[in-house]
Computed example of a mutant assay.
Amino acid sequence: MREFTNPPLASAPPVGGLADVVFDHAQEDPLRAAFGRKDENEQWRDVTAAEFRDEVLALAKGLLAQGIRFGDRVAIMSRTRYEWTLFDYALWTIGAHVVPMYSTSSAEQVFWMLHDAQVSAAVVEHEDHAMTIATVIDRLPQLHKLWQLDSGAVQELYEAGAGIDDEVVHRHRRAVTPESIATIIYTSGTTGRPKGCVISHANFMAEASTVIGLMEPIFTSKRDNGASTLLFLPLAHVFGRMVQVAGVLGKVKLGHQPQMHAAVLLPDLAAFQPTFILAVPYIFEKVFNAARRKAEKDGKSAAFEKAVEVAVRYADAIEAKAWGIGAGPSASLRMQHQFFDKVVY
């Protein structure tokens, strides 16, 4: 058997954990828009790096006040939303292990993951999720806490931790090392029950740094507000989680969309205007086909097809340049690309 190896493009730092960048970025550039989230009027508003740091810190205090300790395992069962990322980083701040569960998981699937990972607390999105866990709660004696996002869990925890000093949280954060467990992700498994895959802080940091290195141009957008992406992949899957971690590490403005239906995605893509999106091929196909149908309905078929042609030529030129066999997009092609970028949005 022949073996081929390549040197790693990035490695995890020798100390610290995933949550450190939240505090570092807030100190370096507190007013940078780190996230976009919808308000009560469904309008996107910015969350600065300092605001996110403060929310992570407040939530971490609440979790400590409610008995979550270093090394405890906490499950999250929710669709993709801002609060998932908030809980992820708050739990990582205090050294807890996050166990993600798909929002569509059955009661038996939920039982197996909570039991096998020895989860002591869980965060769910809404009442249906809470009821799913309730049907198996008598078989989970180690599960002591359950918080529901749609019932004010975040505010409840903020208030619970109000009396805890910041330094208590930072002592937990400083105890996290690259080798500490960050998450346990359950795969479907080839046979039998799902298998829990243990992923360390170092694993995620190295992977995210490699992604940023390989895709450096899209992580350093020349747009006025920098790079941004709309995350709609499930955060229970490692791909969605990697997008989240790389986005936070790479200072990409991150938005969340809980639905992958093209009819919902298209308006949010137009409103949020991400500089890039990462997804699996069938999602792009759905969005593309929906956009084409909308263009046809609006009488813009010719403009849409021209935009497709320009986008393909632009992508081919970029790829050729990356492989060292071309000079990249011409000035004319760049202008066409920028023009149709505005047309599409």
Rank of each mutant, 00 (worst) to 15 (best):
M1D: 10
N6I: 11
S11H: 13
S11P: 09
V15F: 12
V15D: 04
G16F: 08
L18Q: 02
A19F: 05
V21P: 00
H25W: 06
H25M: 05
Q27V: 09
R32H: 03
R32Q: 02
R37P: 06
K38V: 06
D39R: 05
T48Y: 01
T48V: 05
E51V: 00
D54F: 11
V56P: 06
A60V: 12
Q66F: 07
R69W: 10
D72N: 14
A75C: 00
I76H: 03
M77H: 02
M77Q: 04
S78A: 12
R79C: 03
T80M: 05
T85M: 15
L86N: 10
F87Y: 15
D88Q: 15
Y89M: 14
Y89N: 11
L91M: 05
W92I: 08
H97E: 02
V98M: 10
P100H: 05
Y102C: 00
S103Y: 00
T104C: 00
E108W: 05
V110G: 03
F111W: 12
M113Y: 01
L114Q: 05
A117V: 05
S120M: 10
A121Q: 08
A122M: 05
A122D: 07
V124W: 07
M131K: 15
I137V: 02
I137D: 04
I137P: 04
L140T: 03
L149H: 04
G152L: 10
G152F: 09
A153C: 06
E159C: 09
E159F: 12
E159V: 15
A162S: 14
I164S: 11
D165V: 14
D165G: 07
R171H: 04
H172R: 14
R173Y: 03
P178A: 14
T183M: 14
T183P: 14
I185P: 14
P194E: 15
I199K: 11
H201F: 09
F204K: 10
A206H: 01
E207N: 11
V211K: 09
I212V: 15
L214P: 06
M215G: 08
E216I: 06
P217V: 15
F219S: 11
F219N: 11
T220Q: 13
T220H: 15
R223P: 05
R223V: 03
D224M: 10
D224W: 08
A227H: 05
L231G: 07
P234K: 01
A236H: 07
H237V: 06
F239Q: 10
G240N: 13
R241V: 07
V243P: 11
G247R: 07
V252Y: 09
K253A: 10
L254A: 14
P258G: 06
M260Y: 10
A262Y: 13
A263L: 04
L266D: 07
D268G: 02
F272C: 11
L278C: 11
A279I: 09
F284N: 03
F284D: 04
V287D: 06
R292H: 06
K297C: 04
K297W: 02
D298S: 09
A303L: 08
A307L: 08
E309D: 10
R313W: 01
A315R: 01
D316C: 00
A317M: 03
K321M: 01
S330T: 15
L333F: 04
R334W: 01
R334A: 02
M335D: 15
M335P: 02
H337Y: 12
D341W: 13
D341H: 12
D341N: 15
V343D: 13
Y345E: 10
